[in-house]
Design a protein around this nucleic acid. Sequence first.
DNA 1: TTGCAATATTAAGAATTAATTAAGTTGTAT
DNA 2: ATACAACTTAATTAATTCTTAATATTGCAA
Lengths: 222, 222
Amino acid sequence: MKILIVEDEVKLTQALEFLFNKQKIDVEIANDGEEGLMLAEKDIYDVIVLDIMLPNVSGLEIVRIIREKGIKTPVIMLTAKDTLDDKVLGLDSGADDYLVKPFATKELIARVRALGRRKNTEYINEKYEFNDIAYLPKNFELIIQGNNVKIPKKEGDLLEMLISRPGQVFTRDQIVDRLWGLESDVLENNIEIYIHHLRKRLEETNTKIETIRGVGYIIKER
Amino acid sequence: MKILIVEDEVKLTQALEFLFNKQKIDVEIANDGEEGLMLAEKDIYDVIVLDIMLPNVSGLEIVRIIREKGIKTPVIMLTAKDTLDDKVLGLDSGADDYLVKPFATKELIARVRALGRRKNTEYINEKYEFNDIAYLPKNFELIIQGNNVKIPKKEGDLLEMLISRPGQVFTRDQIVDRLWGLESDVLENNIEIYIHHLRKRLEETNTKIETIRGVGYIIKER
DNA sequence: TTGCAATATTAAGAATTAATTAAGTTGTAT
DNA sequence: ATACAACTTAATTAATTCTTAATATTGCAA
């Protein structure tokens, strides 16, 4: 799971990053609204945590814009007690949940988990299921015909991305951004290599990864 | 996605072109109102970005004229703070959105994306349907009798053009402009080739592409 | 109905993009 | 410090898509 945290208090973001990482959750940080919007638009995160009060672009603005764009990533709003108005409470801003500052980090982690899970399947233990395969991101385990196989992290992250939204095409850019981070300059060839590895693992299954030439990849029934 | 930017500050247009290209959005530039109007009339863009203050013909004029002609392409207006009057704010000028200069380029990109998508979502989630066929531009899939077939990009772009406005004749010029860009010098013969490919795919359907001699092509029920 | 222009068809090879393989590097755990 | 696994780079091969070009057919006007 990879999440985006948009929050201008640097100390807080650092603490959160540390805590989430401990839970095997990858974190990307944006310290102002503009950057946050840019990242959120990439549509590569499982959950977005948004402070409402932000420099440049407010959290509410960000939700509005990304929802308009059709991005359905669950959003948790962080609000100070005094800015907690109906708009947020009613959640008709487009956000899915909110948390009043100051909050217990445990609480935030729990809610992130809950939302990250909701979108996919109801399974309690962070399990993605698609067609005849399943994937457990927590221990990087791919399940084929009842057999659990541990796969490398990068392979797992890629599989998780694809399997988390079946039917969605992920562009090569999105894949690079999610697997290697934003300002990385890895060769795009790496995508092909990990796709290749995954395809080999899926050979005997009824699930395949299809190439959309010039665009990216999508997971499908064979 | 292909957009038109009409803006007389050359530096700005160059920067925008660079940024949009990075986002895989094709850009055509016009540096004055007259040229902008001419291009906008071609009706081949997904979004038009229009500065209000322009040499020759103002942005507002351009929207008015193209709307009169029945061109429904979404328009984003760029306005300086001091020309931001009700006409623009109310959006009853025919524009769909506006942005006050100076703006964050990221914000512009976000809004262009949002508007460009809107056109598609008028049809059932990114799916064009006509008669007995359907097309998914996102993964370049043509759906015939429940079967999804992947088709090449150029074929897909052409099909998308035709199917997006059934009943409208597209001229060879419009097709060349949209598929190959304005200053391309590909042989017009290429149109016929891709029309040919599409026709082959549609052979067993009740949908056909008709030639309007001396003009262009139109998609129809057989 | 003949000839011309426009359109259609087909095939070949260029160009682009992806897949594969191999070799080298990094990081980590013992 | 060594060994192994994972990751990255690089080079090669394969596949797909695009374009050119050459030829055939069609529809329209004289």
